[in-house]
Write a protein that binds this DNA or RNA. Structure first.
Lengths: 154, 154
DNA sequence: TTATAAAACTTTAAGCTTGAAATAAATTCC
DNA sequence: GGAATTTATTTCAAGCTTAAAGTTTTATAA
């Protein structure tokens, strides 16, 4: 999917855009993953989960996390398991609904995330250095049109 | 990594752009993966490898594939193994350098890919339907500035 | 030569990912 | 109330992914 169109014709420009979009995000993602590993001995999925929790001090349900992060339920289970075993996150059983549990960052998890997020932001600024802040805003606006048309249609 | 900035400040616009870029590509990628599975019982990584090989009838080395697809060597080994066992691809030992082998699509693989690629292009056109062909060209141009600054610096 | 290094791959261990099946608790409907 | 359904989550099997270590072959150089 990272290869270009195999022929010419209508719709080719969108295909080309998709290829480029994918290559850009894969390249940047790979670089961030490598740095997270080297500098903080963590992974992107763990960072994602912690970022989501950092914004919700009251906690999130497993299903909230999976919906927000665009990954499957089973996937979140494994990542949270590992974060719990590392002492960065807790699962709190709830009285109201015993099927669910609230996932929260521990104090250590919160501190740890803040440090990683600061580095992460600098890295992204660096990796997207060729894009001016102004151009970044315009691109961001254009990317909004990706949603809405088909997403969440069913 | 799919969550937004956790505070305000300089560099935030690039971070926001990165989040949006990542969410867009994950959403589209997920939809394509699902359709490839449902309609053709295949996966994105296999599609990627076949797409690369389709453009190189003379064949590619394992290292060519891994460099082109931006994935690790060991990764390509596994995917090609599976494609070989499905009869879609062959590994041809070479006389010149016995460490390497040329990977090629079989005739069946080539036919199979052509059919999948046609559907794939229609899907992408559909998923990016909100982006006009003209806007697609402009976005593609802007995405070019992602490269060059830091990529392949070491 | 013939040791040494480099290159091309494969293997391995650990973790990520999905969809489907299984479990368990809550809700809905007679 | 009790059966049937829905909801929230976990478990499972298969496959993807990486970095690191191992294998085999080729190239370099003393």
């Amino acid at each position: 999917m990272v290869a270009g169109p195999t022929s010419a014709g209508p719709g080719k420009d969108r295909l080309r855009l998709w290829i480029r979009l994918l290559r850009a995000s894969r390249t940047i993602e790979a670089e961030l993953r490598e740095r997270l590993k080297k500098e903080f001995d963590t992974t992107l999925p763990r960072f994602d989960v912690m970022a989501a929790l950092y914004r919700s001090p009251e906690g999130m349900l497993m299903s909230d996390l999976s919906r927000f992060l665009l990954v499957s339920n089973g996937n979140v289970t494994g990542i949270v398991d590992r974060l719990v075993s590392e002492g960065l996150v807790t699962r709190a059983r709830r009285n109201g609904d015993r099927r669910t549990s609230m996932v929260r960052l521990t104090e250590e998890g919160s501190k740890s995330f803040a440090a990683i997020a600061a580095a992460h932001e600098i890295w992204v600024g660096e990796l997207l250095g060729n894009v001016s802040e102004d151009e970044a805003r315009r691109l961001t606006g254009m990317l909004k049109s990706f949603r809405s048309n088909w997403e969440g249609r069913e």
